[in-house]
């Protein structure tokens, strides 16, 4: 198997790793870089627990070969509060019951962050259409919708 050098920024910091061709981004993040905030759920791109941003685009780390991020900027949940201060979205998730067990939360937050870039004041339909790729079994989603509304300054 071929090995590839992957040079990219992870949450703003330059990183370079050598990975075999079949390494997936989720495994590179979790096993090689110790960034375990990105969670493994279904492993088939459906549940969204492994959502990350690559150059701002929302993607599934469980389906993405690590070599695909060479030269790109990856943002994970660990990068949202980069300066130690929670973002409005993170804080709203705590205040509004945007999570319970928390396993889907990194993916929800990454997805919500991308949503609010695309739609700073999202309509309920825009929230639902965008966030429907992030499954949550605990909250029934109501708290997530409330939190996104608060983060967007709409409540």
């Amino acid at each position: 198997m071929t090995t590839h050098r992957v040079a990219f920024t992870l949450n703003g910091a330059a990183r370079a790793i050598d990975v075999p061709a079949d390494r997936l981004l989720i495994d590179a993040l979790r096993d090689e870089l110790g960034a375990t905030g990105t969670k493994l759920g279904c492993g088939i791109g459906v549940c969204g627990a492994c959502s990350v941003l690559v150059d701002g685009e929302l993607l599934s780390a469980c389906l993405l070969p690590a070599i695909f991020v060479d030269g790109h900027a990856v943002t994970t949940v660990e990068g949202l509060a980069a300066d130690g201060e929670l973002t409005a979205t993170q804080d709203a998730f705590i205040r509004d019951g945007g999570f319970q067990c928390g396993i889907c939360t990194p993916g929800q937050l990454v997805a919500a962050t991308a949503l609010l870039v695309e739609h700073p004041r999202p309509s309920p339909d825009e929230i639902r259409t965008w966030m429907m790729g992030n499954l949550c079994r605990c909250t029934g989603y109501y708290g997530i919708e409330r939190a996104i509304g608060r983060a967007a300054g709409m409540t």
């Binding site: 096993d31 375990t36 493994l40 509060a81 804080d91 705590i94 928390g102």
Partner: peptide, 23 residues
């Protein structure tokens, strides 16, 4: 007082450790 999850910060920053995160 409003309710503010004690483990909330860990869960929204990715710091919360689940079994599969332990190596």
């Amino acid at each position: 007082d409003p309710e503010y999850r004690v483990e909330g910060r860990d869960k929204v920053t990715g710091a919360a450790r689940y079994a599969a995160d332990v190596a």
